[in-house]
Design a protein around this nucleic acid. Structure first.
Length: 923
RNA sequence: GCUCAGGUGGCGGAAUUGGUAGACGCGCUGGACUCAAAAUCCAGUGUCCCUUAAAGACGUGCGGGUUCGAUUCCCGCCCUGAGUACCA
C-alpha cells in the first residue's frame, strides 16, 4: 500500500489539536528548553516557501529536545503593527485591524499545514491590548528611571531628585543628553516645570528636540536602522534630517553593557561583529583648545592625541553650536551661505557625494595647547554633529579625510610620524598607528602607542581634557507619526508630558475616520475624538515604532495570560531566557539591539532574572527565487529559445516559474498566461523552448514565488519539511528549486515501504543481525550529531542511505525500525506518528525517548583482513611518524599483519588514510 | 574604503576539522517492467587520453609555501555575497 500523505497528515494534525499534544506547562521535574522563532509580520501576500525555513529548523530542534526529555517551550505569535496595513488603510479606508486579522488567519492556516509543534495557547499579537499594555507599562518604567553610570544600572528617578535636592549635580554620574551643573539651592529654587525639564535630560525614555530622519513620503520619522543609503528601508523613499520634538530611548547608556554582553552569547562571529561595529566603541580623549581673542573653549574628541603636533586646522560640524560662537564678523556671510547649502542637501546627496570636499573658514583661530600655535577653525559637513563633540582637530598628514580637506583648501600638511621609510605625503596620508614620533616636541622619538598614552596623561594633568570613550550607538527615536502602533500612555499638562497611572493601562488605540495626518499636519491620532484624559488633558498623538512591540515578546510567551505582570516570577525563573533563537540576520542592528537593551533595563529593575534574552542565535539564510526568462526578438512577438538567442537581438522577460518545468517552457500555458502572449511564435531548439534562469529575490514581480500550500498539496508537509532542510546549510542563502523535491519524496515512500513490504503493515519481532544494528546505530549517531550542530542538511542523506541499506537487507525487525521512527519524527512528524501508532503505541510519538546509539555496534571488525577497495588493498597499521614514503613502504612490508597478503606481490602504491589505515596498491 | 563570510562536477551541495575529493539528491545516458505512458527498479555519469576497458595524467578561484600527504594550515592576489560608510 502506497503512503497516502494527504490523509495521514490531516489525520494527525487533527489528533494533535484535539489532544493538545503541544501544550506546555511549567514542570520543575524536567529541564526547560526555550526555542523561539522571530515572529512574522503577517503581510497580505501570505507565506512563500522561503518563510518556513527557520520555522522548520526550530521545530525539528524543539521536537528533538522534547524526545531528549526537555520541557520545551516553543511558541508563535505575530508582529502585528506595521506600515503595510496602514498604507492599505489609507488607500482603501479598511481598518488596519481588519486587514491584520485577516492576514493572521491566512498565516495561521498556512503554518498549520506544515505541522509545527507550537503551543498556540501562548500566541501573542503586538496589537492586542492585553499584550501592548505591557509595552506601555515598560515605557512608563523607562520614563521613571535614569541610568547611573557608577552603579552601571537603571535607578528610579526619585533617587536622582533626592540627590539634586541635597547636593545638586555634585557627584552625579548619570547618562544624559548634555552635562549639566547646578547646586542644590539652584535645583530647589526651580519650579515644577523647570525641574521636569531638567529631569528630561536624564530619563531613559525622554522627550527632546532631536535631529531625526524624516521621511516626507511616509510622513513619519525613522530610526537609524530603518534608513539605508539615505532611503527608507520600507518603501525606499528619500530621508532628510530635521529637528523635531520626539520621544527617545537612552539606548546609548547601555552601550558598554551591550558590547560586553556579546562575549557570553553563542551567536555567530559575524553577527557579533555587526553589533560591535554598530555600537562602535572608540577610545580616545577630549581635548580643549583655547580660542584666540575669545572666551570660548573649543572641545574636540580624538582617538589620536599622539598627533597633536601635526594639527594644522580645526573643523566644526555645520550644526555645531560652536559655529555661531566662533564665526568672525568678516566671515559671517560666507559661513551663512555654506550653512544654507548644507541644509538644502538631502541625506542621500550627502552620502553619495562623500568624495566631494566642501567647507568654509570661520575666521577664528584656536591655540594648540602644545605648540601654542594659532590654527584656523573651519566648518565642514564631513564632521558630524552627533558624534563626539561635533568638532575635531585635523591632522592631514595622518588622516585621509583631513588630508583631502587640506589639499582642497591648501592647508599645511605636517608629518609627525616616521615609520622607518620615507613617508610620501604627496598622494595620500599615512593613517597607520605605527612608527616613531617626529616634529613633536616632548614626544619626539616615542612609539605611537606610547605617545598616545603620554599625551592623554599630559592633557589630563594640565586640566585641558581627559580620556574618553565614545560610542557610535545613538539613542533610539521612539515616536512615529502613524496610526497603527501602540499609543503612548502620556498626557500633557502645561506642555510637559506626564505618565498615566498603571491602572489606566492599556491605553487603547482610538478609532479614527481616516488614516492620514490631519490638515494641520498632526499625526493621524489628531483625528481621534475625545483623545484626552478624564481631567481633559490632551494625550500624546504619536505612536510607538515597530520595534516597541517586538522588544519583549519572548517574555510574554512565558506567561501570556498574566494580567498582573509582564511575566510572573515563577514563569520567569523557570523559563528564564531563550535558549535557541532563530531568525534573519537583517535584525542585527535593529530588533536584536533593542531587545537586548529592553531586557537589560528590565533586568536592572529586577523584573527578569537574566541579563541577556537570547542565549544562542542562528540566522537562517534567505531562500531566494529561481526566476525563468523567455527572450523576445526585438520588435516582434516571437520568442527564441535560450540556446539560440545569441543570433538575435532580444529582450529578457520574466516568465512564471509555475509554467516552466526543468527550464522547458510549457508553450500552451504560456499562451494562456497573458493575453499579449496568446499568439506568440517560438524559435525552438530540439523541438523545445528552453528558458534562461537566474537567482533573484523571491517576489511577485519576478514571477518566481512558490507557495508552500502548492508543495504540500502535491508532495505533503513532511516532504516540504525534509526538502527545505535538504536544500543546503541552514545559514546559507540558497535558491529554491522545486526540481529536486522528487528525491526526498521518493525517500519517504521508500521509508514507508520498509514497514509495508507487501500490502500489509508488518514488522518482525526477531533479533536483528549485527549488520542491521550497525546500520541503525550509525544512523542514530549521525542524526543526533547533526541535530546538535544544526546540520540538518546532512541528516537527510543519512536517513536515505540507511533506508536503502535496510531495504537491500529486507530488514523488517521492530528493534531496528522502531528507533528509526523516533529519530525521524522531528523531521517528518506526520509519517512518524502514523507508523508509531501502527507499531502498536497508543500515545503520541512525541512522548517517546530519543534512542541512544552505542559505540560497540559501530566498531569496524573487517580490518584484520584486507578489503578490496577500488583495486587497492587496505591494511590497518600503526602510522609511522616522520616517515618518508619509502619508510612507509618498508613499514608496510615488514608489518606482520601485512606479510601474508603481500607475499609474491609488488607494492605499487601506498596510501595512508585516517585511523591508521594504510591503503596498499598491489600489482 | 573598512569588517565579515564564501569560491568544490551540468546543478544544489558532502568530506568525521590535515588523511581514498565529489557522499546524498537533481539532471542526463542506457536497461528492466509496460501495447504505451506514469510509477518503480537496476547500471553508468569530474576532465583528458582511448573503439572500449585497464592503466595513466589532470583536477576543490589564481600564484607561492609548510607537510610523507592540503578542499582543509600559512603568505600574496582575483572574484562573489553580506554588513557598514565621512564615527575623528
Amino acid at each position: 500500500m502506497e503512503y497516502n500523505f494527504k490523509e495521514t497528515e490531516q489525520k494527525w494534525q487533527e489528533y494533535w489539536r484535539e489532544h493538545g499534544t503541544y501544550k506546555v506547562e511549567i514542570d520543575p521535574s524536567k529541564p526547560k528548553f526555550y526555542v523561539l522563532d522571530m515572529f512574522p509580520y503577517p503581510s497580505g501576500a501570505g507565506l512563500h516557501v522561503g518563510h518556513p525555513l527557520g520555522y522548520i529548523a526550530s521545530d525539528i530542534y524543539s521536537r528533538y529536545k522534547r524526545l531528549k526529555g526537555f520541557n520545551v517551550l516553543h511558541p508563535m505569535g505575530f508582529d502585528a503593527y506595521g506600515l503595510p496595513a496602514e498604507q492599505y488603510a489609507i488607500q482603501t479606508g479598511q481598518h488596519p485591524a481588519v486587514t491584520t486579522e485577516k492576514n493572521i488567519a491566512r498565516y495561521r492556516e498556512q503554518l498549520d499545514k506544515i505541522g509545527f509543534s507550537y503551543d498556540w495557547d501562548r500566541e501573542v499579537r503586538t496589537c492586542d491590548p492585553h499584550y501592548y499594555k505591557w509595552t506601555q507599562w515598560a515605557f512608563i518604567r523607562m520614563f521613571e528611571h535614569y541610568y547611573d553610570r557608577t552603579q552601571q544600572q537603571a535607578r528610579p528617578i526619585s533617587e536622582l531628585t533626592a540627590h539634586f535636592a541635597a547636593n545638586g549635580t555634585e557627584g552625579v554620574n548619570a547618562a544624559c543628553s548634555e552635562e549639566l551643573t547646578f547646586t542644590a539651592a539652584e535645583w530647589n529654587a526651580k519650579g515644577e516645570k523647570e525641574q521636569q525639564e531638567v529631569l528630561m535630560n536624564y530619563r531613559i525614555a525622554y522627550l527632546r528636540d532631536t535631529m531625526v530622519n524624516w521621511c516626507p513620503q511616509l510622513g513619519t520619522v525613522l530610526a537609524n536602522d530603518e534608513v539605508k543609503d539615505g532611503l527608507s528601508v520600507r518603501g525606499g523613499y528619500p530621508v532628510v534630517q530635521k529637528t523635531m520634538r520626539q520621544w527617545s530611548l537612552r539606548v546609548s547608556a547601555y552601550a558598554q553593557r551591550l558590547l560586553e554582553g556579546l562575549e557570553q552569547l553563542e551567536w555567530s562571529d559575524s553577527l557579533k561583529d555587526i553589533q560591535r561595529n554598530w555600537i562602535g566603541r572608540s577610545q580616545g580623549a577630549d581635548v580643549t583648545f583655547d580660542v584666540k581673542d575669545s572666551d570660548v573653549k573649543l572641545k574636540i574628541f580624538t582617538t589620536r592625541p599622539d598627533t597633536i603636533y601635526g594639527v594644522s586646522f580645526m573643523v566644526l560640524a555645520p550644526e555645531s553650536e560652536y559655529v555661531a560662537q566662533l564665526t568672525t564678523p568678516e566671515q559671517q556671510a560666507a559661513v551663512a551661505e555654506y550653512l544654507d547649502y548644507v541644509a538644502k542637501r538631502t541625506e542621500r546627496e550627502r552620502q553619495s557625494e562623500v568624495k566631494t570636499v566642501t567647507g568654509v573658514f570661520t575666521g577664528a583661530y584656536a591655540i594648540n595647547p602644545f605648540t601654542e600655535e594659532a590654527i584656523p577653525v573651519w566648518v565642514s559637513e564631513y564632521v558630524l554633529a552627533g558624534y563626539g563633540t561635533g568638532a575635531i582637530m585635523a591632522v592631514p598628514a595622518h588622516d585621509s579625510r583631513d588630508y583631502a580637506f587640506a589639499k582642497k583648501f591648501n592647508l599645511p600638511i605636517v608629518p609627525v610620524i616616521d615609520n622607518g621609510q620615507p613617508i610620501d605625503l604627496s598622494e595620500s596620508s599615512y593613517d597607520a598607528k605605527e612608527g616613531k614620533m617626529i616634529n613633536s616636541g616632548i614626544i619626539n622619538g616615542m612609539e605611537v602607542k606610547e605617545a598616545i598614552a603620554f599625551i592623554a596623561g599630559e592633557v589630563e594633568k594640565r586640566g585641558i581634557g581627559r580620556s574618553k570613550i565614545n560610542y557610535r550607538l545613538r539613542d533610539a527615536i521612539f515616536s512615529r507619526q502613524r496610526y497603527w502602533g501602540e499609543p503612548f500612555p502620556v498626557y500633557y499638562k502645561e506642555g510637559m508630558p506626564y505618565m498615566m497611572d498603571d491602572s489606566k493601562l492599556p491605553l487603547e488605540l482610538p478609532e479614527i475616520d481616516k488614516y492620514l495626518p490631519t490638515e494641520s499636519g498632526e499625526p493621524p491620532l489628531g483625528r481621534a475624538k475625545n483623545w484626552k484624559t478624564e481631567e481633559g488633558y490632551p494625550i500624546e498623538l504619536n505612536t510607538m515604532p515597530g520595534f516597541a512591540g517586538s522588544s519583549a515578546y519572548y517574555l510574554r510567551y512565558m506567561d501570556p495570560h498574566n494580567d498582573k505582570a509582564l511575566v510572573g516570577k515563577e514563569a520567569d525563573e523557570y523559563w528564564r531566557n531563550v535558549d535557541l533563537y532563530l531568525g534573519g540576520a537583517e535584525h542585527a542592528t535593529g530588533h536584536l539591539i533593542y531587545s537586548r537593551f529592553w531586557n537589560m533595563f528590565l533586568y536592572d529593575l529586577g523584573v527578569v532574572c537574566e541579563p541577556e534574552p537570547f542565549k544562542k542565535l542562528i540566522n537562517q539564510g534567505m531562500i531566494q527565487g529561481r526566476s525563468n526568462f523567455v527572450y523576445r526578438v526585438v520588435g516582434t512577438n516571437t520568442y527564441v529559445s535560450a540556446g539560440l538567442k545569441k543570433d538575435y537581438e532580444t529582450t529578457e522577460i520574466h516568465v512564471d516559474v509555475n509554467i516552466v518545468h526543468n527550464d522547458i517552457l510549457d508553450i500552451e500555458a504560456f499562451r494562456r498566461w497573458m493575453p499579449e502572449y496568446a499568439d506568440a511564435d517560438f524559435i525552438l531548439e530540439d523541438g523545445k523552448y528552453v528558458c534562461g534562469w537566474a537567482v533573484e529575490k523571491m517576489s511577485k514581480s519576478m514571477f518566481n514565488v512558490v507557495n508552500p500550500d502548492d508543495i504540500i498539496e502535491q508532495f505533503g508537509a513532511d516532504t516540504l519539511r525534509l526538502y527545505e532542510m535538504f536544500l543546503g546549510p541552514l545559514e546559507a542563502h540558497k535558491p529554491w528549486d522545486t526540481q529536486g523535491i522528487d528525491g526526498v519524496y521518493k525517500f519517504l515512500r521508500k521509508f514507508w515501504r520498509l514497514f509495508m513490504p507487501g500490502d500489509e503493515f508488518r514488522v518482525s519481532e526477531s533479533e536483528p543481525t549485527r549488520e542491521e544494528l550497525k546500520i541503525l546505530h550509525k544512523t542514530l549517531k549521525k542524526v543526533e550529531g547533526d541535530i546538535e550542530t544544526f546540520s540538518f542538511n546532512t541528516t537527510i542523506p543519512a536517513f536515505m542511505i540507511c533506508t536503502n541499506e535496510l531495504t537491500a537487507l529486507k530488514c523488517d525487525k521492530r528493534a531496528v525500525l522502531e528507533p528509526l521512527v523516533i529519530a525521524i519524527a522531528p523531521y517528518a512528524p506526520h509519517i512518524a506518528e502514523e507508523l508509531w501508532h501502527r507499531l502498536g503505541h497508543t500515545d503520541s510519538v512525541t512522548t517517546a525517548t530519543f534512542p541512544a546509539w552505542e559505540e560497540k555496534y559501530l566498531v569496524e571488525d573487517s580490518f584484520e583482513y584486507p578489503v578490496s577497495f577500488n583495486g587497492k588493498v587496505r591494511f590497518k597499521l600503526p602510522m609511522p611518524v616522520d616517515a618518508s614514503n619509502a619508510d612507509i613502504e618498508t613499514a608496510v612490508k615488514t608489518a606482520p599483519e601485512a606479510a601474508k597478503w603481500l607475499e609474491g606481490k609488488t607494492i605499487r602504491k601506498v596510501i595512508i588514510v585516517p585511523k591508521k589505515i594504510v591503503n596498499v596498491v598491489v600489482g
